[in-house]
Design a protein around this nucleic acid. Structure first.
Lengths: 170, 170
DNA sequence: TTTTAATATTAGGCTTACCAAAAACTTTAA
DNA sequence: TTAAAGTTTTTGGTAAGCCTAATATTAAAA
């Protein structure tokens, strides 16, 4: 599938998809509060989705997705889950993982998403919690390899996770 | 640093930063071809950057960055390198890694970038090419853990890398 | 059933960032 | 030093998405 849809189009399709998963249909208000926009914005976009055959909507009635719209909604939703799972694996706090997944779920090449998916599968299906993940976590705290033979003098210290940093620099 | 700058603002600052790294200054044409936009677009944005104290530009003259603009340009440029390095570690082809890095280098929480940076450091500073990376690559091809004890029947096959897929689904 | 509250829609406007065409300026080459 | 070529700027327009305020419709409560 070529890149055809704008980021916002995908956002709306994903939102409607998720709302429909729960309730079977979506109202304008559901969509606008899900995406944190005002109702007129949702109306406008839903109208476009309808015209493009991605959603079905008649005035004052509920919104549903066409098969095509649903396909895209599900795809983006899956990407979201994949990216989120990956971010959690590398110890990004859940709330950040979720919003950051929103940000990067669009526009990544399928190859990239595929590899992230692989990494997630690799870790989750590993015999146990793989050893290197523990090593990684220790590395995050200390900047040292537990099993380390070489010392890396010129190596920067790892970037510690902190929930309290307000001013953030990298 | 709070999120203040639009994605495009950051793109322009990064572009000017990189061009300046090479030549010491940037011309409108350099910027517009770097970002693949037409000169009037570059002129327009450069004017804004100038007004916001991020770049210096007088009519018909070269563009340079102020210290503040340079700081941001460098930050984005670093993020780009980090993300790209990560994508290459998980076997995303270079050309995809590069364009995808462009896409996700903006708007990610510092915590997230920090953890990706940690992962990259972790792998690159590891005593050798860490064992699990090899395992991961084998996993990508076969969907199996080499050292695997448990079998995961319900596990999906890994998503193979393919340079030839035209139609892409996940 | 009628009033009220909630929701949806329209109308009109804003901002960002893009573009093409034309005009202004620089640089290069004759 | 003037003409041609190249670059930059201005002008005027477009599209996507968002907003507020006002209006229309539906749903709920009296």
């Amino acid at each position: 599938m070529e890149k055809i849809f704008s980021r916002k189009t995908e956002d709306y399709l994903e939102a409607i998809f998720k709302i429909m998963e729960e309730k079977g249909y979506a109202k304008i208000k559901d969509i606008s509060s899900f995406l944190d926009v005002r109702p007129p914005s949702a109306v406008e976009m839903v109208k476009k989705l309808n015209d493009r055959g991605l959603a079905i909507h008649k005035k004052y009635e509920c919104v549903t997705l066409t098969p095509k719209g649903e396909e895209i909604g599900r795809l983006i939703s899956d990407r979201h889950a994949t990216i989120r799972a990956f971010l959690e694996i590398i110890s990004v706090p859940k709330w950040i993982a979720d919003t950051d997944a929103c940000v990067i779920e669009h526009e990544l090449h399928s190859e990239t998403i595929g590899q992230i998916k692989n990494l997630v599968s690799f870790v989750k299906s590993a015999p146990d919690n793989p050893e290197w993940l523990e090593h990684f976590e220790i590395f995050c705290e200390t900047g040292e390899h537990t099993c380390g033979e070489k010392k890396h003098a010129e190596m920067e210290k790892a970037h510690p996770l902190s929930t309290l940093r307000i001013e953030i620099q990298e």
